[in-house]
Write a protein that binds this DNA or RNA. Structure first.
Lengths: 183, 183
DNA sequence: GAAGTCATGTAAACGGTTACATGATTTT
DNA sequence: AAAATCATGTAACCGTTTACATGACTTC
C-alpha cells in the first residue's frame, strides 16, 4: 500500500504529538503550507484511510460538548514514517506564474521585464516578512531543530530571491521615462 | 472566459513564433518545465479550445508526409497575452518532498536531518548542472533577454540552495561516528 | 445575539499526469 | 530491420481545491 506524500505529512505531524484533524490543518497552515499544503478535503479522508490501515489510531477526546477525535501514531505508523524519511527522492514540483511572466515578458519589451522582476521581488519580500513573524512566535529555536532549520531556509530563500530580483532590475537598461529626464 | 495558466504558456510560446503542439511541448520541456510543466494531455485539448475562442489560428503545414498543424497568435490572442502579462499575481505553488523530510527529520535524530540536507544539496547541485548545460546551448544570451534572465535565475537559485544546505550541514553537530574517531 | 472559532465532514469540479493508440519518417 | 523521432490525440485516473453543510462553544 503506497502512501501519498500528504499521508506522510499527517504521519509526520502525529510524530510530533497526537492531534485532531483540525489541529493538523492549523499546524500545516503555519508551517509546511509553504512547500506542501493540505486541505480538509484531503486530511479527513486520509485520516480514515490511515486508521483503516492501522498506521494511526483515533480516540474520542471531546473538548466540552464538542466532539473531537485525536489521532496518534501506532508502532506500524512510526515505522512507516521512519521508512519514508530514510528513502531518497520524492516529488519536487513548482508552479510559479511570476516566473512564467518573467520568461515571456520580452515580447512586450524591457518595461514588462522590469515589471515582472519588481512584482516577483515584492512577492518574496512579503513572504519573507511573513516567515519572520512566524519565526518570532516560534518556541523551539535551537540550531539543530529541523523545523527551525526549515523555517530559516524559507527566510533565506525568500531573501535571496528578492535580492536577486533587485540586482537584476539594476542591470536592466534604464526605462524610457528616466532616459528622457537625463537628456 | 477565464484562461488557465497553461493556456497562457501556450500563448506565450506562440508569442515567440508559430509552432505545432509537438514543438510547444519540446520547448516547454527545455525551458518553463522547471517552474511550469505541461503534458500532451493538456496541450492538445488546450490548443483546440484556444482556436475555438479565436485566440490562436492553426494551419496545416505538413513536413514531408507527416501531417502537422502550426498555430499562431491572432490579434485577440496577442491582446490576451499582453493583458495576462500586465496583471499582477498568479499561482505560486511548491510541492517539495525533500523539505517535508527535512522538516520532520528531527523525530529521527540529527543524523536524519543531516541526510535530508545532504539529499537536498545533491538534488540542487544536479539541477544546477542541468541548467548550465541548457545555458551552454542557448542562442540568445544577451543580458536583457527575459528567457536568459529566467535561466540565470534558475542557476543562481539552485546554487544558492545547494550552498545553503552545505553551510547548514557544517553547522550541525558532528555525527557519532566522527566523534568516536576524534576521541 | 452576532460573529468568530472549534470541529468534522462531503460532493463537485478542476487541473494535470500517465498510459495508450496510431501512423509516418528518419536514423542506425 | 529495428529503433528513434515526429506528430496528434484520447481515456482513465489522481490529487487537490472549493464550496457547502452541520453544529457546538466562545467572545464581543
Amino acid at each position: 500500500m503506497e502512501l501519498s506524500p500528504t499521508a506522510h505529512v499527517i504521519l509526520g505531524m502525529l510524530g510530533f504529538e497526537p492531534m485532531s484533524g483540525y489541529e493538523i490543518k492549523r499546524f500545516v497552515d503555519g508551517s509546511t503550507r509553504f512547500f506542501w499544503a493540505a486541505s480538509y478535503g484531503q486530511i479527513y479522508p486520509e485520516l480514515r484511510r490511515l486508521a483503516d490501515e492501522g498506521l494511526i489510531a483515533g480516540s474520542d477526546d471531546p473538548r466540552g460538548g464538542r466532539r473531537r477525535t485525536v489521532y496518534r501514531l501506532t508502532a506500524a505508523g512510526r515505522a512507516a514514517l521512519r521508512r519514508w524519511l530514510a528513502e531518497p527522492g520524492g516529488v519536487q514540483e513548482t508552479r510559479d506564474e511570476s516566473l512564467l511572466k518573467l520568461f515571456f515578458s520580452e515580447v512586450e519589451g524591457p518595461a514588462a521585464t522590469r515589471r515582472a522582476l519588481t512584482a516577483k521581488r515584492d512577492h518574496h519580500l512579503a513572504l519573507g516578512a511573513r516567515l519572520r513573524e512566524i519565526e518570532a512566535m516560534k518556541a523551539d529555536r535551537s540550531p539543530e531543530s529541523s523545523t527551525y532549520i526549515t523555517l530559516r531556509f524559507g527566510i533565506a530563500f525568500n531573501d535571496f530571491i528578492a535580492e536577486w530580483c533587485a540586482a537584476e532590475i539594476d542591470r536592466l537598461p534604464a526605462p524610457a521615462a528616466k532616459r528622457r529626464e537625463l537628456a
